[in-house]
Design a protein around this nucleic acid. Structure first.
Lengths: 171, 171
DNA sequence: ATTTACATGTAAGACGTTACATGATTCT
DNA sequence: AGAATCATGTAACGTCTTACATGTAAAT
């Protein structure tokens, strides 16, 4: 059911079409939080509309339909975000591969860990620069909390990969 | 197909039964890398055996069957782990909720962040203690790497939530 | 005129969850 | 003797992916 709330969350910021939302998933969510294809988004939007959580607010060119979150949708979104939810399920193929590196021989693992250490440091610096630029322009801080978490996450990944490399060197 | 490789990776460490593997998922993978239920693990083990990637190495009490990875399985596991695979898909309900914090009002956001700061510190300490214990008894690298990244990840979450709370207090 | 981007969907099959089903062994 | 844990599975249902299907508007 997370897809439903991801859509509500994106629509809570501004009205958007299914096509727009697919772009938002791609740009803002898929690397850290959630992924969805268009073929999943369109039917779910129709279900959300049928349930009264969103409504069509604009019909544009090429059959475009822009949706907005309703008051009922906002209440339901808030309920879900505030719900403590222990034991959330995580599926991260990238992290899984990092764990399984330890099952390969040392030279294979070293090579990939070096790439990982480098790549995550680069991602960290990219996000940090974007945050600093946004900070300077004096925007509302809460909008950048997610970016800050991303930056810290990639730094942690970098440090972990470096640590894992040193562990492999010990043996 | 990730489940298949998660199983191969765990079996690359040591032979195990489906029941054992469910425990390994629960303890080592589910919070940051991958999750699987027993009802998914047993059929997949049978498929892996049929494909010659694992084999039954022991039949014990209560119908227990321990599997070991085969040479073919090891080759296939290595191929998958080394495969670059850009754009891996992430689904993390917890992170999604953190991203959607921006849609709540400040008091609600504070509430979530306090829960987050407390919960992630607790998880960090739990994992760090488990690592210290494992360090003393010399456990398998896969479990060790997983726990270390988990511990670092939860500490990062804790620090981020604390930072975000202090940011909210500033205004 | 042609290409690119916009725009919405359906269908088949793969993957994952929840509930159900069964029984053996160990611990207290 | 009873409870907890070990141990393996199936069935129904829900979610997600991949391939297919269709057409419009803007840019070059």
């Amino acid at each position: 059911m997370s897809l439903r709330y991801a859509l509500l969350g994106l629509l809570a910021e501004e009205p958007a079409s299914g096509y727009d939302l697919a772009g938002k998933f791609e740009r803002n969510l898929r690397r850290y939080a959630w992924h969805a294809q268009r073929s999943q988004i369109y039917p779910e939007l129709n279900r959300l509309a049928a349930d009264g959580l969103v409504s069509v607010v604009e019909e544009g060119a090429r059959g475009r339909r822009a949706y907005a979150i309703t008051d009922v949708g906002r209440i339901e979104l808030r309920r879900w975000v505030l719900d403590p939810n222990d034991e959330p399920v995580v599926r991260n193929e990238h992290t899984l591969k990092l764990f399984l590196l330890a099952t390969l021989d040392v030279e294979d693992a070293r090579k990939v860990l070096r790439q990982q250490a480098e790549g995550s440091l680069h991602e960290h610096e990219r996000l940090r620069a974007a945050i600093d630029q946004a900070d300077a322009s004096g925007r509302a801080p809460v909008e950048f909390f997610a970016a800050e978490l991303g930056a810290r996450y990639f730094l942690t990944l970098h440090e972990w990969a470096t640590w894992a490399l040193s562990r492999l060197d010990e043996t």
